[in-house]
Design a protein around this nucleic acid. Sequence first.
DNA 1: CGTATATGGAGGATCTCTCTCCGTATATCG
DNA 2: CGATATACGGAGAGAGATCCTCCATATACG
Lengths: 219, 219
Amino acid sequence: MTETGGERPLRADARRNREQILAAARDAFVELGPAAPLEEIARRAGTGIATLYRRFPDRAALIRSVVLDAFERTVAVIDEALTEEKDPFGALVHYMHGVLDVRIAAVIPSLLGEIPFDDEELEALSRAAVSPIEKLIAEAHEAGTLRADVTFGDVGMMIVRLSRPLPGSFPRELNDQLAHRHLDLLVHGLRGDSASKPDLHGPAITMADLREMRPELPE
Amino acid sequence: MTETGGERPLRADARRNREQILAAARDAFVELGPAAPLEEIARRAGTGIATLYRRFPDRAALIRSVVLDAFERTVAVIDEALTEEKDPFGALVHYMHGVLDVRIAAVIPSLLGEIPFDDEELEALSRAAVSPIEKLIAEAHEAGTLRADVTFGDVGMMIVRLSRPLPGSFPRELNDQLAHRHLDLLVHGLRGDSASKPDLHGPAITMADLREMRPELPE
DNA sequence: CGTATATGGAGGATCTCTCTCCGTATATCG
DNA sequence: CGATATACGGAGAGAGATCCTCCATATACG
């Protein structure tokens, strides 16, 4: 994946390190933002800083690879959503949950702001991720299962809001669960009066829980 | 407001500068996080860096004042919500919209992680902001107007999610409007089938709009 | 108008991050 | 099992950002 085929194949250890750097970069960008120190990324990847620079000449190259990878995963999620759900609304919700698991969605907008976007591969993948969702939204509108006034922007921005880690250094797993829980809430609304509301995913956090978690280090 | 009464009163210009620094700090913390450069805050306030240091000996003192001020505003919002809305669910929603306007909610958790919390004034205000909301949630649960499985944590965390500025440097005003729009969405849910859904606040952003805004600087 | 109070910004100290160099280690192939 | 191309890690110089103090000047207020 994310292979821009041309070059000589990497040695096995080099390829492994490259993947680990990419994964570490994904996490670091989500948690620390697009300016995350490259040294921190190398540290998380368990490699030296030189190895990172050897593989990615500069921050832009690293960002580009991360974004490309994220788009690829997103496209895969879309395919899955379209395959597994027949009705458009269900597929849209399935997609949103799936994208939360890609995690990086939160920072794609900022990452894109950091690199030149006149890039064919990037644009192609971006289109491949956007247009099926626009189609899905239109179909759900037509079927009347999605609020008529909900736009593509709303969907995208809510995904961003939900996939950003909450400030205050919760454990990562909790953060992920809460994202799904809160997506459920968004889908079904807060009201208790309307009929069939399926159970929420994820843990219910009370004020007492929050207090207990207080002795936490800064974000 | 936020007067810890003891000291000699400030000269008029000093008081004005103090308020401006506090306001600038609030904005900077929201946009840049709790590690926002103090020089940047002074710049936004239109004062010299020395003036900031004269009024707030260190970052912790500044953060403390910002948090205190935010809690005070939050308490005021709660009072308003309780006064103007008779039913608990309505009051809760009113409160959530009001808190979005306080803006700083997004970073209170991180800010609190940066300063010692064994502070009577802080704790008192915190309690004054928390317990009415817990009560409201309980009442709305009883009335059946709020989903039974929605907790205090859900409400607080959704406020945080909604009040954080979206990445990618949208104009501030747009960000604020979108926060309210997306809160509406949360309250009513995405589905289009159930009956009475009031109009959403704020602008509907399409993919085309987003593309148009692309030539944006990094966050 | 005198004086206590307040101001701004230059600049040294410190910290953080970037990026390269080079001696050492490991994969791969015959 | 070598031989060799490939890859590795980490030190450390350099650049830049941020902190924080000092002091000559300005302003509010009695």
